[in-house]
Amino acid sequence: MSGVIKYFADILHGIKTLWGGMRITGKYFLSPKEIVTQQYPEIRHKQKIVYDRFKGEVIMPHDENNQHNCTGCGVCEMYCPNGSIEIITKKIPGENGKMIKVIDKHIYHLSMCTFCGLCIKVCPTQALAWGQNFEHAVYDRSKLTKVLNKPGSSYKGLNKKKEAKS
């Protein structure tokens, strides 16, 4: 007899738990406000869709005087595991006639980058940072090779040295 009771109790228990599951999905079906999907191209300019620590691409921040922190030391180039950074330096005459080495082109191959972040970590002057841009699709491979320092920019520390001396 207890077997028969257990048989029907099992069935009732099964129906109860199944109904519990169906209640949850039914509730979601009836509450479209809980949808978590973000419709990407539409919300691109309406709200921020990535978080602050998102690794989009390597950038070199410039201040309002078009000056950056890069000394052209080349540590990032040495640390990069893929060789996606190339540093080209040039020599300009300093104030007392001495030639000073400064950055000419900080070349960044986005197509080779694995976004490990070593270049940013090792930079002694915090010249590099993570950018938030993630839309990297372009029509030509050559467009993925970027020059990080803007044209006409200069090293921020150069002025400070001058100020300290004078």
Binding site: T25, G26, Y28, F29, P32, E34, I35, V36, T37, Q39
Partner: peptide, 13 residues
């Protein structure tokens, strides 16, 4: 659409 709504998605749109 039904499946998407039950999984908190939008579905084909």
């Amino acid at each position: 659409k039904v499946c998407a709504l039950m999984q908190n998605r939008i579905g084909p749109n």
